[in-house]
Design a binder for these strands. Sequence first.
DNA 1: ATGAAAGCGCTAACAC
DNA 2: GTGTTAGCGCTTTCAT
Lengths: 333, 333
Amino acid sequence: MNKTIYDVAREAGVSMATVSRVLNGTAVVKEETKAKVQAAIEKLGYRPNAVARGLASKRTKSIGVILPDVSDLFHAEVLRGIEDIATMYQYHIILTNSDAREDREVDLVGTMWEKQVDGLIFISEKITPKIVKTFESAQLPVVLCATEDPEHRIPSVAIDNKQAGTDATRYFLNLGVDKIVFLGGPTSQPVTMERLAGYEKALADAGHEFNPAYVIHARDSHYQAGYDVSNEFLNSGLKADAVVATSDELVLGFLNAVRDRGGKAPDDVMLLSFENTRLTTIVRPELTTIAQPTYDLGAVSMRLLTKLLNDEAIEEYTVRLPHSILERTSTKR
Amino acid sequence: MNKTIYDVAREAGVSMATVSRVLNGTAVVKEETKAKVQAAIEKLGYRPNAVARGLASKRTKSIGVILPDVSDLFHAEVLRGIEDIATMYQYHIILTNSDAREDREVDLVGTMWEKQVDGLIFISEKITPKIVKTFESAQLPVVLCATEDPEHRIPSVAIDNKQAGTDATRYFLNLGVDKIVFLGGPTSQPVTMERLAGYEKALADAGHEFNPAYVIHARDSHYQAGYDVSNEFLNSGLKADAVVATSDELVLGFLNAVRDRGGKAPDDVMLLSFENTRLTTIVRPELTTIAQPTYDLGAVSMRLLTKLLNDEAIEEYTVRLPHSILERTSTKR
DNA sequence: ATGAAAGCGCTAACAC
DNA sequence: GTGTTAGCGCTTTCAT
């Protein structure tokens, strides 16, 4: 097996250049010879070797995706968005997990270069100067997804996290709720800090006092971390009327900590989180969330990357996707 | 930029073959020249072009993964297992979603061939003759993951689904429970049917009567489908003491349908499901499950594939990973 | 509209 | 232990 373009050329009685032309549509070929070539391709069951193609053309039609962890529901949904648009534009995805470790990330950008990907979609918790420098030296088109470079040197697609934090907090304020807990990931996580800034702003705007005891940080954004830190909080004897949490799993940690104490939501505490993964409608009470357009975050990132790759006109390099509040039972009394 | 192996050779004052040798360790090189080469690599910031390498060596160090949907939690966790082992063996993953559509799957195997992947990991709902034929004509080493070829022509890693179905059912039987609902995916799904066979066997072994009304099939394995079909069941007025469901989301659909009617679990109905994704401990009550070793399913598949690729000795081409029952509160009265 | 030929950057015989 | 030289299967000038 393993037919080559040369076999097709001979079978069709033309040169390999002509076969290449009908394959790629890079030049006009007479209908008649085109038909002969296609017949030969069909007959031999020929398929072009993408590796040879990549070497000769210097474009591999594959793009690298570096993200912290695919098994995280949020990332998995974003990835699906990336993949769908990639497929639409005939790109393939080379996927790697970084566990959000900077050294891994730097390393992975290098191996992505080795693989000669045409571009990169990068999802991380934090964009460090080292990473930015790595992007530059790799000379790869990069789009940050659900992540922003604080100095906006790299194209990105995300939501306005500070505004979202404000909106979430204001939502409770408008309900007349008083003691609002902010439950986030570690302070090293820019996303958490931006949303926290929004929370503080909403409080300040409303003339509310800011009480640092109501800001709690979990060690990561997963369920167990949320559960643990919520228990600590509740053990301290503080009373919360509502929670604004930066991830769906985190808020479920709080919910279950409350339940362990015989409490209920929304009766004893109202809950709002940020991701809008499918968890929000699977659990009871269904969770009110700031709806991040998860799938779109991936899809739009990939679309932006294709524009970069084709030198299409680009209006905005720092794309902010709209967010909204989806009210569900976790905040209905 | 874009240094080539030739630049390194000149910088180090050796031939490109020697550079290739220190890069790949394919032959003994004098310590001294090796050092010179490494210094040159360092100095130039050289990185080998994997595409050229792939073309010359006919091995790309990349493997294709075809699965129905990454945004499905189960698949995402399996994928993480695949990826970790792949990284360990220096392979990269090219990922594609098939939506479990046979035509897409056949097509994707073809494009994976074009990409010259060294091997394939295939996850699907069903292994059809057409797919098997496609594998054969592609001449690619394939490992089926969480899926089995009914005729065992293709190496696979899965659990013993019939046995698991029996174990799950017997668990309730031993608890003295009577009316056990089997809630599965569509009848076209072999996994569902195998587990159902196990359910029937357990009933038969115990001398229980099999009542077809207690077997319900959702249109897919997701939450909403489970919720909808559970509502239909409950509307019919039938009473269930326990549910054996083929996915975590499905059983949550049943749970919420029961809750909508003012019922509770495990008090009114005991719940058991099959995947053991992280959902099981996030929701309340925590779900008793047949613990499929999700991550391991991926990891072991990838390991098996590396064995295939390196002509290592293989004891078993049809690997059955052990399953177990994790008792949690959804079955504790 | 088509063919000839020169690479793309590397590996892998084959020499020495 | 190291260098020389063919390719790997394509794309892409440059002719014609």
